[in-house]
Design a protein around this nucleic acid. Structure first.
Lengths: 204, 204
DNA sequence: ACTAACTCAGACACTAACGTCTGACTTAGA
DNA sequence: TCTAAGTCAGACGTTAGTGTCTGAGTTAGT
């Protein structure tokens, strides 16, 4: 179990307020996943809360999105870290990481698109903690010959992200069964990153 | 040069009207590429045309999007067809197709997301012509052992699309140079679809 | 050179969402 | 049990976008 995301030492809140905040964030993540332009009213409705309550905790829409973005990144970072990307064979490590991360990452599909709209360099920078965990793995795999060295490491990262999102998209659209898709995703990523199809090591 | 997209036999228009329509569609594609929610006013502005003119030809926003979607699909279909996916070694054919299609497809990045928001089965169906050209290639490659058969063909298609979009995203963001990225994309797709890195046949 | 098609300019009504505010009610927590 | 923190309910002004309309000016094509 990954260590949960730490929250900044904000002012102390009552338990029910904390509860509302959690419900609102969950609702926001779900609502924005299906419609990136979901209104505050819609989010409030899904959270079972009145609109004013949302604004109480998140004065502006931007604040809410920033909050769930930060939470999303923290969760994904935890999940990735828990898969120990630094241990063992690079290809196996990659398998572990992808398998562990893809469901969690898939939930936040829309956030990537939403944040991409904002030409905000600091938001891009916030993604780095998650990518920073991956990068050593990529570099390691390139060094020991498991991963192809003829493409930029940056591209490896982006393309893995894209594949994960594609997988969650297929799942959401119901075009592919949940059980098949994880295997397909892992196989594709491993293949894309450089290993051939014959390379069949232990699958965690 | 691919044969240009055929237009339905609509009522005859004056040459300047035809010109306006083209400019509006181009502007819409560009504007929506950077902001999927670009307003009609913004599109009109970029087209160097007044808003009323846009509504003259495209009575509603939905009509405009449908029009450029159809045009996009037609263009991509032409480009793919021109790369003769049915000829020669499957891996080589895939290389040709990806290299030829990715720039064209990348321009229409946003349209995929926009149309994905619409739970419209007929729009999904319209994509089929482009995918229909790819599918035989995928099937062929799976049969002769070039492509891995342990993942669904449907996934192969989606994941190729995702990689192309990722590539155009990297290009747009300026994180990767244009010349490097095409090679990286092709290599990644070929690897993902099943061939290992050692398999170096002629590249178009 | 004439006319129908087209474009421009700008106003209009309508809608949806954002964010603010007030006052009454409820509940967590000391 | 008492009170501050929190929630609800609903109204409000504001902004931004859509789609419509009118009327005056331009241009393509015969």
């Amino acid at each position: 179990m990954p260590t949960m995301a730490r929250t900044q030492p904000t002012k102390p809140r009552r338990a029910d307020a904390e509860h509302s905040i959690a419900r609102i964030q969950d609702a926001a993540i779900d609502a924005l996943a299906t419609d990136p332009d979901a209104s505050m009213a819609e989010i409030a409705r899904q959270a079972g809360v009145v609109r004013a309550t949302v604004y109480k905790h998140f004065p502006t829409r931007e604040d809410l999105i920033a909050a769930i973005t930060q939470r999303a990144i923290a969760e994904v970072t935890d999940v990735i870290a828990a898969a120990s990307p630094e241990q063992g064979d690079a290809t196996d490590a990659l398998r572990r990481v992808i398998a562990a991360a893809w469901r969690t990452l898939g939930r936040f599909h829309a956030l990537v698109a939403i944040n991409a709209q904002v030409p905000n360099p600091e938001l891009r920078a916030r993604h780095d903690p998650a990518l920073a965990l991956l990068e050593p793995l990529i570099v390691r795999g390139r060094r020991d010959g498991s991963f192809r060295p003829d493409v930029p490491a940056e591209w490896h990262l982006s393309m893995i992200l894209a594949l994960v999102h594609a997988a969650s998209g297929e799942l959401r659209a119901g075009r592919l069964a949940a059980d098949r898709i994880e295997a397909a995703l892992v196989a594709t990523v491993v293949g894309a990153v450089g290993g051939g199809p014959g390379r069949t090591t232990t699958t965690a």
